[in-house]
């Protein structure tokens, strides 16, 4: 490790990354008429900020609610169902809204995306309920043996196996 804290892997990684980053940033600038660098920059930085400052705190809040409201055997299935449904919903959003529909191409975005999303969320819920029931049955025989701390879990963290 160097005096500044760099490991050999980091130095090699940076040496390989700089040409790639440089090529990408140069491309954005050289192609400015097409890439609109200021707007693209806002999307790139904005995506990270939106994720870090809004999305994950929101997930944490949901996690707090799940930790407080549900028994331990139900927490992982409940969080999985919420997260997977949210991902499906976010993915489906522009399809449901139909922003890209084009009257001259009726085969484009022709599906009933509301019904499709509802069907997938239903599948997620069925899987989550089945998973939760299996966990409850297992937990029944071993007390709180399936305790799986989620974020903001009110219980102290347990020592866990490696």
């Amino acid at each position: 490790m160097s005096r500044l804290g760099f490991t050999r892997g980091q130095v090699v990684g940076l040496a390989l990354a700089f040409p790639l980053l440089g090529y990408g940033f140069r491309g954005v600038l050289v192609d400015a008429g097409q890439t609109h660098p200021a707007e693209l920059g806002r999307w790139l930085v904005g995506s990270a900020i939106l994720h870090d400052a809004l999305l994950v705190p929101l997930v944490l809040l949901v996690s707090v609610a799940v930790a407080r409201l549900s028994p331990s055997w139900a927490r992982p299935p409940a969080l999985w169902a919420l997260a997977t449904s949210a991902i499906l919903a976010v993915y489906a959003f522009p399809f449901v809204r139909g922003y890209g529909r084009n009257p001259s191409v009726p085969s484009l975005l022709a599906r009933d995306y509301v019904a499709g999303l509802a069907a997938y969320v239903a599948v997620v819920l069925v899987v989550a309920v089945a998973w939760a029931l299996v966990r409850r049955r297992s937990a029944g025989g071993r007390g709180d043996g399936l305790a799986a701390p989620v974020d903001a879990d009110p219980r102290p963290a347990h020592p866990v196996e490696a």
Partner: peptide, 17 residues
């Protein structure tokens, strides 16, 4: 396309670290 090069650059740096 250009954002992909930037992202891959960031990925390579991250893998190294």
């Amino acid at each position: 396309f250009w954002a992909a090069w930037i992202t891959i650059g960031g990925l390579v740096a991250h893998i190294g670290a």
